[in-house]
Design a binder for these strands. Structure first.
Length: 195
DNA sequence: CTTAGGATCGCCT
DNA sequence: GGCGATCCTAAGC
């Protein structure tokens, strides 16, 4: 399943989603994501690979996770604990679906709308967590499998350099030591600090 | 500041 | 029937 012809790879905000999830997760730090013009700069991500026991794709395709199996550059939105929505960007390498969980944003656009949806939370908490940022941007199942390079989504390439830190992923019980959580160093908008 | 429990539902065993 | 890629609140130290 090679959609890539040398030099002809289609990029979204400078990102090639036909790369390993951990590589895409690292490169997404500093990229701005907007949904209907509301959102911010990505400061925290986690990679979930096809061969990864912690990944929803690990046990195969289902009604919930089909978006993870492609195409790349689309959204995978799932419900967590029966309550919260979580947003992933789908990656593919050699036809294997994988995802990058968006874990935290630095709020940039549409602050009023996000504060209103989040009961006027402090700006440092507003998008600090996968469930919180989905509530702030009003992401739901309706966004599942949508393309990231078309409305309501908009991705903007990062400008300038960023210092990225890595560590173990949060809230999982399998593959606990895999260091596939990435963050913008010293950002005050992380869901949890890196140590 | 740290920890514990509840909410709530679709998927997997 | 069990258990989450979570979040909020309340209580304890």
């Amino acid at each position: 399943m090679l959609a890539t012809i040398a030099g002809m790879t289609r990029l979204i905000a400078g990102i090639d989603f036909e790369r390993p999830a951990h590589e895409v997760a690292r490169k997404l730090i500093g990229v701005t994501v907007l949904v209907d013009g509301v959102g911010g700069r990505i400061v925290e991500t986690e990679a979930y690979d096809r061969e990864d026991p912690a990944s929803h794709a690990f046990t195969g395709r289902s009604e919930r996770n089909f978006a993870m199996f492609g195409p790349p550059g689309h959204a995978y939105v799932y419900r967590s604990h029966g309550l919260h929505w979580c947003l992933n960007f789908v990656c593919m390498e050699d036809g294997h679906g994988a995802g990058v969980l968006i874990r935290a944003l630095e709020p940039v656009k549409g602050l009023d709308a996000m504060h209103a949806r989040r009961k006027f939370d402090d700006v440092h908490i507003l998008c600090a967590g996968p469930g919180r940022l989905c509530q702030a941007m009003a992401v739901t199942r309706a966004h599942n499998a949508m393309a990231l390079d078309a409305p309501p989504f908009e991705l903007r390439a990062r400008t300038g350099r960023v210092q990225v830190v890595a560590g173990p992923r949060i809230g999982i019980s399998k593959a606990v030591d895999v260091p596939w959580r990435f963050g913008l160093a010293n950002s005050p908008y992380l869901s949890k600090p890196f140590r």
